[in-house]
Each structure stands twice: as structure tokens, then as C-alpha cells.
Amino acid sequence: MSDEQLEKSKILLVEDEENLAHGLEYNLSEEGYLVTIARDGKEALKYFDENDFDLIVLDIMLPYFNGFEIAKHVREKHPQMPILMLTARTQVEDRVKGLELGADDYLTKPFHLKELLLRIKGMLKRKNWYQKVVIENPIYIFGNNEINFENLKCSKDKNEFQLTSYEAMIMKYLIENKDKVVTRKELLENVWNMNPDIETRTVDNFIARLRKHFEDDPSNPKFIVSVRSAGYMFQIQD
């Protein structure tokens, strides 16, 4: 997907710090994105419900509804919506909570403009790639599991649950590369579009969550197996 096609992507920017919101709006508009600013949680939910967006940049500490509550609401309505959390909080619990509630990426303040723009571009690219590959093959069945890559609804035995967009993307990537070793670096570069020198633990966290979803015994995985000092591999054992 070319960069030109990413332009005109609609971004909902939820940030109550006026100066920061203004600077971000300027930069995102300069990149060709169409930006809508929400100054608090109420506005964010209203704009999200009334419009179509391609991506959400979300602060956590917000008046009325915080970023976690908004992420939850967005996920319920639109499981594939990419959410980038942008926050001053650095505690691990916040990061974990954000990712659990469905944020796809997390950037702490103060951040570098270049990094932010790269991550946004990466997220939009992946969203487009994902939408394209999913049209061809929306449902995948392995073991007792069924994944619908369109609405991200899954079932294991009779239990139904929902994947976040990143979980689905990783699963899709692993399935596309079935029986091949996928390195953490590869996942970071292709799914997160991130510098692989950092954040390798993010991959492990996501893999642990996927195992919880799909494995009978997550500590002894059968589908998403670890390959020592290489990475992960998706396989279906007979």
C-alpha cells in the first residue's frame, strides 16, 4: 500500500492538553491525515459513534471518561480499529491494562514526533494489509478453535471470546507462515512496524495472551510453540 493511499486517513485525536492537541493536529494534518480533535471522554465517544475513523490516538487521563473506558467502548463496537495510547503514565500496570483493553500500541510522553508518525503510518498500513488478506479467507479453524478474522470473534470448544486487532494480526501472520519459524524481530517489524531492538517483551506478552485463548494448556502449547532462541511457530499436530 503506497503512502499516498494512506493520506486522507481519518484520525480521531483524543487529547485534553490544548497545546499538545494543537501541535499534534498540525503535524498529522501536514502528513495528509484528516484530524478530528476530542477534548474529553464525552466528546471522544460522541465523535466515535457519529463518524468513521481509521485510527484513534488516545490519551488516558481525560475528563468524564478515561482512555481505558473509551478503548473498551471502541473495541466493543469496532474490534479492528487501531488505537494508539499516548500517555504520561509509565507504570507497567497501566501499559498492561491499556493493552488488555485493546490498545494496539502505547507511546509515553514525552515522545519523539518521528516515532509517533512512524507508528501511526505503520498501524494504518497494517490495518489495510489485514483487511485485504481477511477478505480472501475470513474464517480459520484449528483444533477446537475457530477464528473469524472479520469480526475478530473466536470460539474454543463452546466458549466465545473476542480478539483485539493486534492479537488477530499476530495470529493471521503466524497462520500465514504456518510450520515456519517466525522470529520476534520479524513480528515486531511486520506487525508492529517497530524497531526490533526494543520492546521484544511486547511480543512475548501477546503470545502469552494468544496461548491463553487457544491452547488447552498454555504452559505446554501445541499450536503456538516456542522455538528456542529463534522465535515462535504455528503448527497443527496430527
Binding site: E17, G23, A88, H112, K114
Partner: peptide, 14 residues
């Protein structure tokens, strides 16, 4: 502390 600092950094980088 971080909010105004991020804003200053953003404008400087811009």
C-alpha cells in the same frame, strides 16, 4: 510535568 514538556518537545521537533 510531562504534559507541558511533551508539548515543548513536539513544537521544537516540528
Amino acid at each position: 510535568l510531562k504534559s507541558p514538556l511533551s508539548s515543548i518537545q513536539l513544537y521544537l521537533e516540528t
